[in-house]
Amino acid sequence: MKETKLPEELEEQAILDALGILDPEDRPAFMVRLQGESDLLRQVVKSYHATTGALTSVVAPVTPPVTLRERLVNQVALEAAREAERFELAADTLALGSVPVTPRDSLRERLLSRIEGESNARFDLRATANIRGETSVPVGEGMADEREKRLLQDDSPAIGYDRAGQPFRTSYGLS
């Protein structure tokens, strides 16, 4: 048979909860019951909350002074600005506070080796260009690719880095 009426003690707690004066000591147990009990308790609690909610509507509205709105707008703008500042500071702290991690030595070796490989390729290309020059191959016939032409015209020395991280210029003596 479906329950239609709450025990008196439970209904009293529902009333006190709606009035906002349920004893703090009783609240945790009441909330647990509210989660687990039958729908009836939830309905009763909701209904008493609607009842007390209606009580506030008895009070007639009173228009606050205009200055209060201005104060609110200014205060909120100030809070928003502070919030933005705090956010920025927190973001900076996070970014700067990240722990540096030294990569393995092999990564450095791989990087240097890659740089060296690219430099050699460049050297080979220039050497090929000189050979072609000697045999008077006109630019445009054998090397239609503009990108390749630009590479051949570039005589600036390449830059390398020693183990101490100091830059040095490399010259392949092509000219």
Partner: peptide, 12 residues
């Protein structure tokens, strides 16, 4: 929201 509700809040 303030414009819509402040009279009721202030009244209470």
């Amino acid at each position: 929201l303030y414009d819509r509700t402040s009279a009721q809040v202030f009244g209470l």
